[in-house]
Amino acid sequence: MNVLVCFKVVPDLDQLSGSDWVVDGCSRVETRFIKKMINPYDESALELALKLANPAKVSGITTNLSALTIADSGANLTLKNLRALGYQQAVRIESDAELDFAPQEIAILIAAYIRNANDFDLIIIGQQSGVGDNAKTPLLTAELMQWPCITQVTAIENDPAGNVKVTSLADEGTVTRVIKPPCVLAVGNAPFSTLRVPTLKAIKEQAAVPIKTIRSTEIRKAAPNLPDSPDAELLKLEVVHRKRKSMIINGANAPEKAKILYHSYLKGWLADL
């Protein structure tokens, strides 16, 4: 089975301090200077795919893993690490466009890549990622490919006969589906999905293998019949101001602070319930 996981390296926005949140009209917040991380939902997607591939080796089913990102060369480090973890292909699409708020463009590039490769069974993507918070990429990818899609995925397992067992959250509870690929899986809050860490030995073995890089224009040319679909345009960004001003309770120790908290605040509030 051939699995493609799409991921994005994003700025760790919690690293920005209050004064860094400066916006002016629709100009972007400066995030260049803060640490990057793999978008947490994508990190889960990458790990779920590794979990799917590894026992498969034991059971005789070969799972071929590919990782794809649309990014500048800053993402190469992550791609190399993914190769060291067992991703056979690690591919980067280079685009000059501003993509934070352009999920349809991202989905078009992903779909173009899938069509070109023409041998993927499963596409696994985190359901949403920071900065844009668009929550559309996996859905639009499924539509462009005319494949089914399962959202809020929490676990993926092999099932006999080339099928895949997918667990996901739905409004009515936990749904388990045994499916016949192809399918797009949008990963939600998946427990136990922190990405494993590659060993130096594995990284070294992969060091010489170059990361495959494709220009976005090339890939679009290669799959010309995909639609252009400008969708929503960002007009303005504003900082969200939170209004509460906290009263800090002072006391000699925890029990004393608890007493003050209870008698001065909580007791009255509880009485109003």
Binding site: Q15, S17, E30, R32, F33, I34, K35
Partner: peptide, 12 residues
């Protein structure tokens, strides 16, 4: 390097 990279590190 741009001091803002170092400042972000310093803040954490």
């Amino acid at each position: 390097v741009d001091t803002r990279y170092i400042k972000s590190w310093f803040d954490h």
